[in-house]
């Protein structure tokens, strides 16, 4: 899985490389545009384009019918029934491309979360480093040490929470750069990345997880933890990234982060703008 993650992640790195120093909106518009193209492409080749066109025409025709014969109850009723029928048909036609899209889209979203979900720490900023152990494993029994580094200060002794099988530290970012936190667990060395004051658009991996398909799928930012250690996750808490539109911070909506709202809205708009140029029927 790590090989896939690493390779797939590189694609995004490549895409965003020239735009790292710019306002994150530039990267966002670009990736939304590419997504729109991908969606149009998928639609074009995996859907029944002819069918969609026909169904849409039918719907238009019946809508017209509805307006023309609004005085005749039976006719307009019939028209309504037809509109409904063709709508169902339309949905069934678009289901296939949507199904084709869904898996790549999820993979893309997971990657984009690493780029747009979090704000890197700034020098002087404090955060929590959290090591989550296997369930039931007491944090008092484990032989685990955190090594100091030039990039950050370890400000507290370990805080061990037995109830949660968790060990926490407070870190304070010191220098710019992507630093390695080094742990020594049962004699083995482990590292976890910490990003401090990166370019406006940079990849941030808050969580390093244990080797497992699902875990790694959801947290693709870093190589996985070995399975033979009693550690489930290592996490650094980053502030959420704001998407600022002319001085207005786009808010979270029903738990959906701002970047995701922007991404969906932009890719849909761009999809509609470019569908004519690529002659795609949506």
């Amino acid at each position: 899985m790590w090989i896939f993650n690493s390779a797939f992640g590189k694609i995004f790195k490549l895409i965003f490389f020239p735009f790292r120093g710019m306002n994150p909106w530039v990267g966002m518009i670009l990736i939304s545009f590419l997504t729109a193209l991908l969606m149009l492409f998928v639609f074009r080749f995996s859907s029944n384009q002819e069918g969609i066109r026909r169904v849409k025409n039918k719907i238009k025709a019946h809508l017209l019918e509805l307006r023309l014969f609004k005085d005749s109850l039976s006719l307009s009723f019939k028209a309504q029934r037809n509109i409904f029928r063709y709508n169902l048909k339309y949905i069934s036609y678009s289901a296939k491309p949507l199904l084709v899209m869904i898996i790549p889209l999820i993979l893309i979203l997971i990657q984009l979360n690493l780029w747009f979900g979090y704000e890197p720490l700034v020098p002087g900023q404090e955060t929590i480093l959290k090591v989550e152990l296997e369930e039931g494993r007491s944090p008092l029994d484990i032989d685990l040490a955190l090594e100091p580094s030039a990039g950050f200060d370890i400000q507290t002794l370990p805080l061990r929470i037995e109830e949660e099988s968790e060990i926490d530290w407070r870190l304070r970012a010191r220098e710019k750069g992507v630093h390695d936190l080094t742990f020594i667990v049962n004699g083995q060395r482990l590292t976890k990345k910490v990003a401090v004051a990166q370019k406006p658009l940079s990849k941030i991996s808050p969580m390093k997880v244990r080797r497992s398909f699902i875990n790694e799928l959801i947290n693709p930012g870093e190589s996985p933890l070995p399975r033979d250690l009693p550690i489930k996750t290592i996490r650094v808490k980053y502030p959420a990234k704001d998407m600022n539109l002319f001085g207005w911070n786009i808010p979270w909506l029903l738990g959906i982060p701002p970047w995701l709202i922007v991404y969906f809205v932009l890719s849909i708009i761009l999809g509609f703008v470019f569908k004519g140029i690529f002659k795609v029927e949506i």
Binding site: L140, T156, L157, L159, E162, W169, R170
Partner: peptide, 16 residues
């Protein structure tokens, strides 16, 4: 249990 540190968790804050 031993070290003089504590973590406070309130609404969306968590700090040591």
């Amino acid at each position: 249990p031993v070290n003089p540190v504590a973590k406070i968790s309130i609404q969306d804050h968590e700090f040591i």
